[in-house]
Amino acid sequence: MRSRVSSMAAGSSVEWLKSVKAVVLDMCGVLYDSAEGGGQAIAGSAEAVRRLMDSGVTVRFCTNETQNTRERFLQKLRVMGFDISVSHVFSPAPALIHILKERGLRPHLLVHDDLLPEFDGVDMSSPNCVVIGDAADNFSYQNLNEAFRVLIGLEKPLLFSLGQGRYYKETDGLKLDVGVFMKALEYACDVQAEVVGKPSAEFFQTVLSDMKLQPHEVVMIGDDLLNDVGGAQRCGMKGLQVRTGKYRPSDEQHPSVRADAYVDDLAAAVNAILTDH
């Protein structure tokens, strides 16, 4: 039987698991692996989510998925065996749309085609900002240059990025994520993007506010050391890293971000949390 959870350093404690009232779960790399046949549940993850929900622990899902609407994304997960409510899923696009409407902004979009329905009803005439997400094949030179021209033509350039990931894992291997293209536009236009999604503190705070809990009562479980674990820790939450998805052994020796604990997969994490409850 493998170890349930390993601490950051030999001999250190995971006593904090006993005080956890809520768990925030990353999705890709934690619930499912997009590198397996285009999308397959990680062994034991669907049952782990059910056990966690049945235990009375509050559960929310926090994803930087920007290639689908939340509804379409969850349809895919239901086929894999997950029963998740749309209202419990926090993703960048709905959060950004709230910001756009609140600030009277009209975006030029460089996003994935399948995300466009999220922006139905959003005024995009005479853009006064640029929004980029994980546009995948839409990240052509022509499209990037068009976004650059809109941005550089504004008196006060305003760039929003739906996350800032460096790369992710797909069926055919690792792929560049939105953060790489965000940096290109930042450099070209001498502007700093406003990041909506992980690791933004405002994004995590939205999830905490929804649960009506304090950061120290919540643990974030993710496969991305910087965006999941590091982002959560900067908000005062605990960060637990699973050794699935984009995890690499070198993550455990990162010079500036250290998970509060490491665990083989979500099933083992849930075992540890429920055992300590």
Rank of each mutant, 00 (worst) to 15 (best):
K246G: 09
A46W: 01
K238Y: 15
V24C: 02
S91K: 02
Q253P: 04
H88N: 15
G121I: 02
Q142V: 15
Y262K: 03
Q241V: 04
L154C: 10
V86K: 13
Y32Q: 14
K198E: 03
K18F: 02
K21H: 01
G153N: 12
M8P: 02
I273C: 04
L158V: 08
R4S: 08
L176A: 13
D120E: 14
A188W: 12
S34Y: 01
N143E: 07
S7H: 10
A232S: 03
V207F: 05
L151G: 04
A35I: 09
H88S: 14
S125W: 01
T66V: 05
V219K: 03
V30E: 00
R72E: 12
S250V: 14
A188V: 09
S126C: 08
P255L: 12
A22L: 03
L225A: 12
V122G: 03
H108R: 07
V79N: 09
G165E: 04
L110C: 13
S200I: 06
G222P: 01
D264G: 14
A135M: 13
A269Y: 14
G29R: 00
R78L: 00
E217C: 12
N68V: 00
K156Y: 05
G230E: 03
S126V: 12
E15R: 06
M80I: 01
S85I: 00
V86S: 13
C235G: 12
R72K: 13
L274T: 00
F82D: 09
E118P: 09
K101P: 11
L274I: 07
Y141E: 05
A10R: 14
E71N: 13
T58C: 10
V14I: 13
R258E: 11
G236T: 02
D54N: 13
S87M: 09
S85G: 06
V122M: 04
S161R: 09
R60I: 00
V79Q: 09
T275G: 08
F61A: 05
A9T: 05
A22C: 05
I132K: 14
H277W: 12
D251P: 03
V178M: 01
G163N: 10
Y262E: 10
A41D: 04
Q205W: 06
Y168N: 02
T69E: 00
T171C: 09
G236I: 08
V89I: 12
L226S: 04
K169L: 15
S55P: 07
L226K: 07
K101W: 08
Q164K: 15
V178W: 08
V257W: 06
G44Q: 01
S91G: 06
A201P: 14
H112S: 08
Y262A: 12
P249E: 04
D177G: 10
L266P: 06
A93Y: 06
S161E: 08
L25D: 02
P127A: 07
P199C: 10
D113R: 13
M1H: 15
L31D: 05
D137N: 14
P249I: 10
H112K: 13
M53E: 15
T171H: 14
R106G: 09
P215K: 02
G39I: 08
A147T: 03
E194M: 13
V49T: 11
R166S: 11
R78H: 02
M1W: 10
